[in-house]
Nucleic acid binder design. Structure first.
Lengths: 130, 130
DNA sequence: CAGCATCCGACACGATACTG
DNA sequence: CAGTATCGTGTCGGATGCTG
């Protein structure tokens, strides 16, 4: 039941050249779905966070990558950056409305990997054996 | 209405450490959501394809990357590889059941980028100006 | 036809050190 | 606190040429 519908959607998308590699928003999508940005967006779903809090929350990310990816996310309007001009400075990051709207599809994708984790590992194991 | 639910889901996922960087399936997710694999899976939603057909369909991909990514997708059980022992050889690729189940979330994500393309570009333009 | 081997440049990423 | 600068390494990914 879901299958034919999904295939139909895919066909339409392909027919309209909507996600071909040449399509102009692919670089943005590559950036947003990369290793770190997904985790950062996910972390920000929990509410606004300051730089160091985010750094602790995203587990394993370097300051450089956090800074770099945050900059990109701000650039695409997915994350808001609020600076409190105090000493020491306080910078708070939060999802914009656009960022929140991305959270849905992203969470679904992440959820899929969570649900099918075992099957993926099993297939990987089988492949590496034989 | 969707917002609080999504945030709740995210919170639960984070609380369970389900998509932290350290989480074991992240490497698989990185592979599957990378630049080419998403396009390959999308192309295969249209039905089974042979190597060269797929190569033409995915637009811009090199044979090396197609081969490499197909191998990874086969390894994770998302794509099936059927060899017809003829001369010349015929190799057909298709989505497995697992692959089809991934198509849903993936299509949603791709659809999101299609729908919000203009906002992303606008934000990018604004950022690069000021 | 369906690929693998090789070379090579570009960039992602981490570690370390430094700044307002 | 919230970053930036610099360096070094590894991987990504394209181009080319070759094989069964």
């Amino acid at each position: 039941m879901t299958e034919p519908h999904q295939l139909g959607v895919a066909q339409r998308l392909l027919a309209n050249d909507t996600f071909d590699k040449k399509c102009a928003y692919r670089p943005i999508m590559d950036q947003v779905t990369n290793r770190w940005s997904t985790l950062i967006v996910a972390a920000l779903m929990g509410g606004p966070y300051r730089f160091s809090a985010l750094h602790g929350r995203v587990g394993g990310i370097s300051e450089k990558m956090l800074s770099q990816n945050l900059k990109a996310l701000v650039r695409y309007g997915l994350v808001a950056r609020d600076v409190e001009p105090t000493v020491p400075p306080q910078v708070t990051y939060s999802l914009t409305e656009l960022g929140v709207s991305l959270a849905g599809p992203l969470t679904e994708l992440l959820g899929w990997f969570g649900r099918h984790r075992d099957e993926l590992f099993a297939a990987q194991g089988r492949y590496d054996e034989g």
